[in-house]
Simulated scan of single mutants.
Amino acid sequence: MKTTKLLLAAALAGLALNAYAHKPWLLPSSSLVDAKDAWVTVDAAISEGLFDIDHQPLKLDAVVVTGPDGAKVDLQNASTGRLRSTFDVKMSKPGTYKIALVQQSVMGSYKLNGEMKRFRGSEESLAKDVPADAQEVKLTRTASRLETFVSATETDTAVFKPTGVGLELVPVTHPNDLRAGEKATWRFLLDGKPAANQAFSLIPGGVKYRGTLGEVRHTTDAKGEITFTLPAANMYLVSASWPAAAAPVPGQPPQMPPRRATYGATVEVLPQ
């Protein structure tokens, strides 16, 4: 269990660092359900190929579903297999639901008795992860957010109220109302403030059938906003991280910032 949580933390922390690395994702069966008895099924996994079931399941312990009225919604029929987890969400009220996995983690290194050691864990485990007599302690705290949105019958924006922690997407154009070739406007926040010049990418699923990644990259303006033309219809992973990776210094290991924030969300772009 501990090993799995560490792998998940690593995947979440590195969500936007490498488009080819293992990525965690939440994939709903549909983003918009127009039915009297509205349900959606969600797959959850960490995979090398985006939305491919090829590596390991995403643990569901910390997944939270929030309804349009702000109330928490229970996961139904939750199951974790060898390569993926899956669960159902009953959308008993019309409106938009947020399905999210939000985590805080700490990683770093220290020297003990002349030997360099590395660790990754939580804020709560920091005291036992790093001995009191450790030297040259270097820490990086990461706030990660992984989410997707589904709507029953109609869309609303109540679930997009920002928490003020880490990177967040506060869309002007609703993520359940995206159509290929049309314009969309999104706003990114960092700790509740506009995330100016924030880079993000949209990665479409189905890379193993295309042979190319097909990643689309964008950057917000000084207000943390961007208006862009939506790509071809597909399921996409929105991926962003802050701060931007520092340029490597020859002969030195990569420098980690004292704090990082990552964001990932699955959105569906429908045909026109």
Rank of each mutant, 00 (worst) to 15 (best):
residue 196 A to W: 09
residue 150 V to Q: 05
residue 207 V to N: 02
residue 92 S to W: 13
residue 135 Q to A: 00
residue 168 E to P: 01
residue 170 V to A: 00
residue 86 T to S: 13
residue 107 M to S: 15
residue 123 E to G: 15
residue 86 T to R: 11
residue 95 G to H: 08
residue 159 V to P: 10
residue 194 P to A: 14
residue 126 L to R: 00
residue 85 S to L: 09
residue 180 A to C: 12
residue 100 A to S: 02
residue 116 M to H: 08
residue 120 R to G: 00
residue 197 N to H: 14
residue 170 V to G: 00
residue 180 A to Q: 11
residue 144 S to T: 09
residue 128 K to G: 13
residue 88 D to G: 03
residue 99 I to K: 05
residue 117 K to L: 06
residue 196 A to T: 05
residue 132 A to R: 15
residue 128 K to L: 06
residue 162 P to C: 02
residue 161 K to M: 12
residue 90 K to L: 03
residue 108 G to Y: 04
residue 195 A to D: 10
residue 95 G to T: 04
residue 92 S to Y: 08
residue 158 A to M: 06
residue 97 Y to M: 08
residue 91 M to A: 11
residue 189 L to E: 13
residue 183 K to I: 11
residue 121 G to N: 03
residue 142 T to I: 14
residue 105 S to L: 09
residue 174 H to W: 01
residue 187 R to G: 12
residue 179 R to E: 06
residue 133 D to P: 00
residue 97 Y to E: 00
residue 110 Y to W: 12
residue 140 T to F: 07
residue 145 R to S: 14
residue 109 S to C: 13
residue 120 R to E: 00
residue 167 L to A: 00
residue 198 Q to I: 03
residue 155 T to I: 01
residue 128 K to C: 09
residue 125 S to Y: 15
residue 154 E to C: 08
residue 86 T to I: 12
residue 197 N to C: 08
residue 206 G to E: 11
residue 95 G to S: 09
residue 130 V to N: 12
residue 107 M to T: 03
residue 116 M to Y: 04
residue 191 D to T: 13
residue 153 T to W: 13
residue 185 T to Y: 14
residue 132 A to D: 14
residue 101 L to P: 00
residue 174 H to V: 11
residue 150 V to E: 00
residue 114 G to L: 12
residue 186 W to G: 05
residue 109 S to N: 15
residue 192 G to Q: 04
residue 96 T to L: 04
residue 162 P to N: 09
residue 181 G to Q: 07
residue 171 P to I: 05
residue 153 T to K: 14
residue 110 Y to N: 12
residue 89 V to T: 09
residue 169 L to P: 00
residue 160 F to N: 01
residue 184 A to K: 06
residue 153 T to G: 07
residue 179 R to D: 05
residue 180 A to D: 09
residue 125 S to L: 15
residue 113 N to T: 01
residue 121 G to C: 03
residue 91 M to W: 08
residue 177 D to V: 07
residue 136 E to V: 03
residue 137 V to I: 06
residue 185 T to G: 10
residue 170 V to T: 07
residue 128 K to D: 15
residue 97 Y to I: 00
residue 147 E to Y: 10
residue 162 P to I: 01
residue 144 S to W: 01
residue 133 D to C: 00
residue 102 V to G: 05
residue 191 D to E: 15
residue 138 K to C: 13
residue 96 T to D: 02
residue 150 V to M: 02
residue 175 P to Q: 10
residue 182 E to G: 07
residue 116 M to A: 06
residue 186 W to E: 10
residue 130 V to Q: 04
residue 150 V to T: 04
residue 198 Q to E: 09
residue 127 A to N: 15
residue 186 W to A: 11
residue 88 D to A: 03
residue 102 V to Q: 06
residue 181 G to N: 10
residue 190 L to E: 04
residue 155 T to Q: 08
residue 166 G to P: 01
residue 129 D to C: 07
residue 111 K to L: 14
residue 157 T to R: 14
residue 149 F to N: 09
residue 202 L to P: 08
residue 93 K to C: 05
residue 141 R to G: 13
residue 200 F to V: 12
residue 205 G to W: 04
residue 203 I to Y: 08
residue 112 L to S: 07
residue 131 P to E: 06
residue 187 R to Y: 11
residue 103 Q to D: 13
residue 125 S to R: 11
